[in-house]
Amino acid sequence: VVDFLVSQHPVARVLRDHVVFKIVPMLNPDGVYLGNYRCSLMGFDLNRHWQEPSPWAHPTLHAVKQLIVRMNQEPKVGLEFYIDVHAHSTMMNGFMYGNVFEDEERVQRQAVFPRLLCQNAPDFSLSSTSFNRDVVKAGTGRRFLGGLLDDMSYCYTLEVSFYSYLAAGSAGPVPYTEDSYMKLGRNVARTFLDFYKLNHLIDGTKAVGHMSSGSDGLSGSRQGNGYGNGRSQEEEKPDRKVHSVRDT
């Protein structure tokens, strides 16, 4: 995601002009240094402590939460997306967890981004994507922020298999490689172009030709944006930028 967003790809340039991305690469580098993939140095699963993070025991989580709270309070800046990226040790493919709400219209809007991502990424599974309010997940980022942010926000956990994916037409599971993980990251970034209906800003001939060459790894055919995000571009304030936060 990061490599693509800072590249000179036409899609990346349009996204940088219209969307503000706040990226936290990793919340538990101390634990990863010791070989943990889930816990911090002190043994905390940070994605269960969003409700009351301690500045002493969970300093990285505490800092990110404060950043999000500050951004959410800025009158001219809307925090619309939070995407928490994790690896999954048992399931295949990439998929998402999202929140459920009493408002049916809000429920339908929450499904838009995963549907668009499924069109762009052949290894993303819409059937494995689920929306829930399980008690055991109450301390996760997408659950906590789903209650903190306003009803026009979108909070997800993006899970990606440790080992393989099933694509349409494949005879069996296809092992993930560094390159295929990179492709999924690029397709996640590209999906924001569809979500915000910015496709018309791309020079179609040059952009599609570059994509189809395979050199940028953007797999899957472009389906256009058949889904609305609940807001027209005319409704946006001229000086308003959109934040998208990712952390692992």
Rank of each mutant, 00 (worst) to 15 (best):
S7D: 03
Q8C: 04
H9L: 04
A12I: 09
L15S: 00
F21P: 00
V24H: 10
G31S: 09
Y33D: 15
Y37A: 03
Y37P: 00
Y37W: 10
L41Q: 11
G43I: 07
D45W: 11
L46D: 08
E52T: 12
E52S: 08
I68M: 14
V69C: 06
V69L: 10
Q73L: 09
P75W: 05
K76N: 08
G78S: 09
L79N: 00
H86W: 02
A87T: 15
H88E: 13
H88M: 12
N93M: 11
E102R: 13
E102C: 05
V112R: 05
P114Q: 01
R115Q: 14
C118S: 11
D123Q: 11
F124T: 07
S128G: 02
S128T: 05
S128P: 00
V135C: 04
R142W: 15
F144V: 14
D151Q: 13
E159D: 06
A167P: 13
A171S: 06
Y176S: 00
T177H: 01
S180W: 00
Y181C: 04
Y181R: 08
R186T: 03
R190D: 08
K197C: 05
D203K: 07
D203G: 05
K206V: 12
V208G: 02
M211T: 08
S212N: 05
G220R: 06
R222L: 15
G226E: 11
G226R: 11
S232A: 09
E236M: 15
K237E: 09
D239G: 06
K241T: 07
V242R: 04
H243K: 03
S244G: 02
V245S: 01
